[in-house]
């Protein structure tokens, strides 16, 4: 199925999506990768508030290349999600609505996606120039000193992603390659 849905992602939207669905996302999302996740964890350990309200929001694992003059952002494709796995269940428990990245997730993350009825999307890795065309604006909202790893708030329009792990725990990275395997 193809869907056009809004970000932040509502629970109803997250629950209706199935692994393999093609989704065009429109709305507001936040970027965070390794260093920003580490800082968010430290913030939570100190009982302080995260730099944005995580409930229902989407985290995009992405660190862009610098924007040329007159453009909102540079190249902006997904980074490998598994590096964020150790931080993810805690964020899901706090209400993280969905994640966009690429690559496998740990068993713990998949279990937490099911428990919290969230969803993991993949964007096409290595298509950073194409994906940048779906980003209307980009603003650093926290951890500016981290450079490309700072947290950015992005306005996106019809941003193409594929549901890889759905709220029932179905995993397209397991099911799809199996159909083409000839070992």
């Amino acid at each position: 199925m193809d869907y056009h849905i809004n970000a932040p992602v509502s629970k109803e939207d997250a629950q209706k999506l199935k692994a393999g669905d093609y989704v065009y996302l429109t709305g507001t999302i936040y970027t965070a990768r390794d260093a920003a996740h580490k800082r968010m964890k430290e913030t939570l350990d100190k009982n302080e508030n995260l730099p944005f309200n995580i409930k229902g929001n989407v985290i995009y694992y992405m660190g862009p290349s610098p924007a040329r003059e007159g453009r909102p952002i540079g190249s902006a494709g997904p980074t490998t999600a598994s590096r964020m796995d150790r931080y993810t269940p805690q964020l899901l428990d706090l209400g993280l609505g969905a994640m966009i990245g690429k690559g496998k997730r740990s068993k713990e993350v998949i279990e937490s996606i099911v428990k919290n009825q969230s969803v993991y999307f993949a964007a096409v890795g290595g298509a950073g120039a194409l994906l940048s065309k779906c980003i209307l604006s980009s603003e650093v909202i926290a951890y500016e000193d981290l450079g490309t790893e700072a947290i950015r708030c992005l306005e996106i329009k019809e941003f193409p992603v594929i549901v890889v792990i759905d709220s029932k725990g179905n995993n397209l990275y397991e099911s799809a390659p199996a159909q083409f395997r000839e070992e």
Binding site: P64, R68, S75, V124, A127, G128, A129, L130, P160
Partner: peptide
Amino acid sequence: QLKENLDIAREDMIPICQ
């Protein structure tokens, strides 16, 4: 999409990958 990405990168001078 990846082919289109290569075209955009070359024409608009956006790195192929971030």
